[in-house]
C-alpha cells in the first residue's frame, strides 16, 4: 500500500495530491470505457443514420434519405404503432398488477421473505430462456393453455397464439407483463415500506375507509417512486427486443415488429446498417421524453420529503 511515490515529476504529484487530479485519475477507467463504447457509438449511430453503410463497408453521407425512405415505409409506421401499443398496454398492466402484488406483500404474511424471493424469479432468469418456455406454452398444437381450456369445454380447437396478429400481440404483451411484474412489485414494495403505518392508523381513527386511505395516503406518498419505477419499466418495454425475437421475430405479417426488432432485422440479417441505425435513432425522442418524465418525478420527490439539497 505504498501508494505515495517519490514526487519525481510534478504531473504525477498533481495527479495524486490535488482534488481534481485524483478525481481525474480515479474517473479514468470508467470514463475511457464509457467514452469508447457508449458515447462514441451513440454519436456514430446518429452518423450511420445519415449514411448508406452496409456490413463491412463504410457508407457515404446521403443526408436524410434513410429517414425519407422510412417515412414512406408502412412497415416502419406499423412498428411504431406496435411499439406504442406494446409499451402502453404492457406498462399499464405491469403497474396495476405490480402495485396490487406490492400491496398484498406489504401485509403481515408468514414466509414473506420467501414469497418475495420466488416472486422475483421471472426477473432473474434470462429473458431469452423464459421466453423459450413461453414459446412452448404458446405452441399452436400442444399449448398447455389450449389443452386446459379444451378440457374445460371453453374452446373446441387449440388457440393459434402466435399465428394470428391479434393473438400474437396479446401473447407477447402477456409474456412481457409476466416478466415485468416482479420488478414493479418489489420496487413499489420497497417504497410502501417507507410509508409510516401511523399515518394509516390516524386516518382510520378519523373514519377513513380503506379506499380513502389508499387514495389519500398511500398513493400520494408513493407517487415519486412510482414515477421512477414506471420510467424504468417504460424504458425497458419500449426498447424490448429479446421477447419478440424469440416468440415471433416480428411476425405474423409484421404485427408484432417493434422498432428495436425492425432495426435489428434491417441492419444485421438485412445488411442495411444505415437504415437500421436510422430506426434506432428514431427511438431516441421517445426515450428522452421518458427520461424527462423521470427527472420531474425525482424533482417532485425532494419537496415531498421536505429535503433541501
Amino acid at each position: 500500500m505504498q501508494a505515495r511515490p517519490a514526487r519525481s515529476s510534478s504531473i504525477l504529484g498533481w495527479l495524486l495530491e490535488s482534488r481534481n487530479g485524483l478525481g481525474l485519475l480515479f474517473m479514468l477507467p470508467a470514463a475511457v470505457f464509457l467514452l469508447c463504447f457508449l458515447t462514441y457509438p451513440l454519436g456514430l449511430g446518429v452518423w450511420l443514420g445519415f449514411t448508406d453503410a452496409r456490413i463491412g463497408r463504410e457508407g457515404i453521407f446521403i443526408g436524410l434519405e434513410n429517414y425519407i425512405w422510412l417515412f414512406d415505409d408502412p412497415v416502419f409506421w406499423l412498428s411504431v404503432f406496435n411499439t406504442m401499443l406494446y409499451t402502453v398496454v404492457a406498462s399499464v398492466l405491469k403497474f396495476a398488477l405490480g402495485l396490487w402484488l406490492a400491496l398484498i406483500l406489504n401485509q403481515h404474511l408468514p414466509f414473506k421473505t420467501f414469497f418475495r424471493a420466488i416472486i422475483l424469479l421471472p426477473w432473474v432468469v434470462p429473458t431469452v430462456l423464459s421466453a423459450l418456455a413461453f414459446w412452448w406454452i404458446y405452441d399452436s398444437q400442444f399449448s398447455i393453455i389450449s389443452y386446459v381450456l379444451m378440457n374445460l369445454g371453453v374452446i373446441n380447437e387449440p388457440i393459434n397464439f402466435l399465428g394470428d396478429p391479434t393473438n400474437a400481440r396479446a401473447s407477447v404483451i402477456a409474456a412481457n407483463v409476466w416478466r415485468g411484474i416482479p420488478f414493479v412489485a418489489i420496487s413499489l414494495l420497497a417504497g410502501l415500506q417507507t410509508i409510516p403505518q401511523s399515518l394509516n392508523e390516524a386516518a382510520a381513527l378519523d373514519g377513513a375507509t380503506s379506499w380513502q386511505r389508499f387514495t389519500k395516503i398511500t398513493l400520494p406518498l408513493l407517487t415519486p417512486i412510482i414515477a421512477v419505477v414506471m420510467t424504468f419499466s417504460v424504458l425497458f418495454t419500449f426498447t424490448d427486443f429479446q421477447l419478440i425475437y424469440v416468440l415471433t421475430r416480428g411476425g405474423p405479417v409484421n404485427a408484432t415488429h417493434l422498432m428495436a426488432t425492425l432495426s435489428f432485422q434491417r441492419a444485421i440479417p438485412g445488411g442495411q446498417l444505415g437504415e437500421g441505425a436510422a430506426i434506432a435513432v428514431a427511438m431516441i425522442p421517445f426515450l428522452l421524453a421518458a427520461i424527462l418524465f423521470s427527472f420531474f418525478g425525482l424533482q417532485r420527490r425532494k419537496w415531498q420529503q421536505g429535503g433541501g439539497d
Binding site: 485524483l22 478525481g23 456514430l44 449511430g45 444485421i268 446498417l273 431516441i284
Partner: peptide, 30 residues
C-alpha cells in the same frame, strides 16, 4: 474526492444508465 464537476459527472452516469443496448448495438457492431 468531489473534483470540479463531480455532480455533473454523476448525472451523466445516471443518463448513461438509461441508454438502452437496442440503440447501441448497430454502431457497436460497426
Amino acid at each position: 474526492v468531489r473534483f470540479t464537476g463531480a455532480r455533473v459527472t454523476g448525472l451523466m452516469i445516471f443518463l448513461a444508465y438509461l441508454v438502452p443496448p437496442s440503440i447501441l448495438f448497430i454502431p457497436l457492431a460497426f
